[in-house]
Amino acid sequence: MAEEIQKSEPELERAAEPAKIEPPVVAASLPIKLEPDMPLLRIEAVAKKFGNFRAVDHVSLDVRAGEFFALLGPSGCGKTTLLRMLAGFETPDEGRILLGGKDIAHVLPHERPVNMMFQNYALFPHLSVRDNIAFGLKRAGMARVDIETRVAEMMALVRLEGMEKRKPDQLSGGQRQRVALARALARRPQVLLLDEPLAALDKKLRESTQRELMELQRRLGMTFIVVTHDQEEAMTMASRIGVMDAGRLDQVATPRDLYEAPASRWIAEFVGDINLFEGQPGAAEGGRLAVSTRDAGTLYVTEPRKALKGAVSVAIRPEKVKLSRRAPAVDEANAFNRLEGTITDVSYLGGQTTYKVKLDSGATVSSTMANTTRIVDAYLAGQRVVAWFTSDDCLVLDQ
């Protein structure tokens, strides 16, 4: 197979000549016709067991055409198993997977308009970059001249012109990732699945690749579904995020709503940093609810829309907690909640500084403050401060 493709190298090289090729916008072939308000992908009560272990527990989800969707959760939560069922590498024990209204749950992987990019890239080490990208096209029976054109398009799309003859071991990690992406896109799937696509890259390369993936997805107008355990990665790239735990889908929301309005205490702790104070809700007055806590006294929070039953947690993100050397007045920035303590730890992170404040009750609260000037008027370890935040800065979560 590799020899057949190799025979056309001169033609491929001419087709892939960088000076003559502009990175194209490659639309998915045979686009699925959707009814108004119909999702491209619908997952209905899908479940999967391995022995007595329930990996996916009756998950239902709609993904729209052209959406960049992320499945986020800790290791073992079921997100990769769900992705593999979408790809056709696992078959659901229960439920349906509808693509354009048609059930594909039992369709073979190569017969569904879905492709998957694996975490380890799964490149053939003995094949060149060109032949790796062409592999799936050859198996699909595409004509040789069309393969040449498509490979050239993919090489230009991921900016790897001039590297057609290299083997995977002659590429950097980022370049191997691009080859795997080009191969996954070559068949123009309706949905591209990405399993931890950036896990093997260093921080700087990971951040630049995130931007490239977002731009590529926008240009193609294709539906991307990415699996990741990295909250920052999911919030950076995805338009919506589904958080999974123990095989269940706990919340689906935009990055902003997921961070600012988590559906549970577990999600609040998993997505970003959080300060939590346990307490009992009391009386509500003037749109504010008093919560009596053991570690922070009485905290005033914006009255939640739903009724509360029993114990609650008051949650405040560290960037909402301000520090002062004196207690702000009640009418100063609506500073209803003021906690006195001593700074025990200072972490300078360039653009911001995180402080740990040990309250007089013995509890600890975190505050993250932006370094807006080059000369930072920083607080020091051992210094007495007042940590304050408004009622609007707080979330109330059921225990």
Rank of each mutant, 00 (worst) to 15 (best):
K306E: 14
A307F: 00
A307K: 11
A307D: 09
L308G: 12
L308P: 14
L308A: 06
G310N: 08
V312F: 10
V312S: 08
S313K: 10
V314K: 05
V314F: 10
V314W: 09
A315N: 08
A315W: 12
A315P: 15
I316C: 03
R317F: 14
P318M: 03
E319W: 12
E319D: 11
K320W: 09
K322H: 06
K322T: 07
K322S: 07
L323I: 05
S324N: 15
R326F: 06
A327F: 02
A327V: 12
A327Q: 09
A327I: 10
V330D: 08
V330Y: 09
V330E: 14
D331S: 11
D331Y: 09
D331G: 02
D331V: 01
D331C: 00
E332N: 08
E332I: 01
N334Y: 07
N334Q: 05
N334E: 02
N334I: 03
A335M: 06
N337A: 04
N337Q: 04
R338F: 05
L339T: 04
E340F: 11
G341C: 06
G341K: 03
G341S: 11
I343Y: 00
V346A: 07
S347G: 02
S347K: 12
S347F: 12
S347W: 07
Y348T: 11
Y348P: 12
L349I: 14
L349W: 06
G350L: 00
G351S: 06
Q352K: 13
Q352G: 04
Q352Y: 11
Q352H: 08
T353Q: 04
T353F: 00
T354Q: 12
Y355A: 03
Y355C: 02
K356L: 11
V357S: 00
K358Y: 01
K358W: 09
D360E: 14
S361C: 09
G362K: 12
G362A: 07
T364G: 03
V365E: 03
S366W: 12
S366Y: 11
S367G: 09
S367D: 13
T368D: 10
T368Q: 13
M369K: 01
M369P: 11
M369A: 00
N371F: 06
N371L: 05
T372L: 05
T373H: 14
R374Q: 15
V376H: 02
A378G: 02
Y379G: 06
Y379K: 05
Y379I: 00
Y379T: 05
L380M: 13
A381E: 15
A381C: 15
A381F: 12
Q383T: 04
Q383N: 02
